[in-house]
Nucleic acid binder design. Sequence first.
DNA 1: ACAACCATGTAAGTAGTTACATGATTTA
DNA 2: TAAATCATGTAACTACTTACATGGTTGT
Lengths: 189, 189
Amino acid sequence: MSLPHALLTALIEHPCSGSELAERFDRSIGHFWHATHQQIYRELARLEEAGWIEALPTESGRGRKRQYRILAAGRKELRRWVADLDDPRPLRDSMMVRLRAEAALGPCGLEREIARQVAAHQDKLDLYRRIEQRDFMGKPPSRERRLQHLILKAGILQEELRLRITREALDILASDSGDDGQKHSSKRR
Amino acid sequence: MSLPHALLTALIEHPCSGSELAERFDRSIGHFWHATHQQIYRELARLEEAGWIEALPTESGRGRKRQYRILAAGRKELRRWVADLDDPRPLRDSMMVRLRAEAALGPCGLEREIARQVAAHQDKLDLYRRIEQRDFMGKPPSRERRLQHLILKAGILQEELRLRITREALDILASDSGDDGQKHSSKRR
DNA sequence: ACAACCATGTAAGTAGTTACATGATTTA
DNA sequence: TAAATCATGTAACTACTTACATGGTTGT
C-alpha cells in the first residue's frame, strides 16, 4: 500500500525514468521498501493514469526511456498519505520461525546459513556507516537533513540488532552441535 | 513462503484446531509471522492435501472444530526447510518512507500518528518483558529454552529500537513545528 | 426458541514475484 | 552486422487482505 507513495517521494527529489527509479530503489529507498522493476513500471503507469505524475515529452516507444515528473495532485496525495499512518504491523521474520522450529526439532543444520547472514548483515552495516560518514558528518543539520539521518540511523541500528541476534544464534547452535543431536529433542513423540 | 512452516512448527508443539492456531499466532509466533484466520484455514487445507498433517477423527462439518496433528512427512519437510534459509530481504517499513517524504515536503502533521506508535511500541515492549520474566527467569537453560529466549529477546530489542527511532522522530518533528512550516521546504519548485 | 458467539469457510480484490518478450542502444 | 545490454513491458502465479456467509454451540 505504499509503493506508489515511495515512488512519488523519489520523484519529488527529481524527475526520473523507471530504470533510474529501480536503481535508486536498490541504493537508498529500497533499504526500507524493496521493489522490482516490474512493480515499478506497473505502478508508474497507474500513477500516470491517476494524474499524479506525467511523462516528460520525449518520443515514447517500447525500448525508449520515459522520464516522469510529479504533478501538483501527486504532491497533494503524498502529503495526505504521510500523516495517514496506520499501526505498526508485526514484521515477518522467517529466521525466527526457523529458530523456533529448530528448538522443537533439534539440530537441523542451520549454522551454515546463519553464518552467511552474519556476513551479509556486517556488509550492509559497513555500507550504511560509510554512507553516514559521507553524507552526514560535518554538515549543518537542517530539519530535512536530520530526518534523512534518522532514517539511515534506523538502518544502522537494525543491522546491528540483526548482527547481534544472528551471532548469538550461532553461539547457541554451535555450543552443543559438538556433543550430539539426540538429547535436545524434548517434545518428541 | 513460510506460513505453512510456521503452522507445522506450531503443530509440533501440540495438535491444534484452526481457531486455536489463530489464537496462538496472535500471542506467540504471530509476533514474528502474522496471519489471519483465513490464511490459516486455507493453509491447513493445503497441508492436509500435501500429506504433511492430518485431521484427528472428530465428526467434521462446517461449524465443528477440526484438530490437526503433524505427520512424519510434515516433520521431514519442516526439517528440510529450516536449513534452507535465503538471504535476508530488506524489510518493508512505511514509516521510513513517510519520514523521507516529510523531509522533502516539509511538515505534514505526522507527529500525532507517531506519538500513537510510541505508545504502541511501549506496550508491546512491556508485554515482552513480562513474558520474559514469567517464562525465562530462574529456569535452567536447555538448548531449546535458550533458542526460545533468543527469539523473545529479538522481539524486545526490536521494540526498543522502534521506540528509540519513533521518539527521536518526534523530537525532530516537534523541534520546529512551533515556528512555522514554510522555510523548511528546501527542494520545491 | 432466540440471540450472541464461535469455528470454519467462500469470494473478490490487491500486492508482490517469477519468467519471459520486445524494441532500442551500445559494443565487438 | 551480430551480440550484448538496456529500458520497458506482458503474463501467470502466489501471497495476503477484506468482507461476508454458514453451520454449530452456549446462554437466557
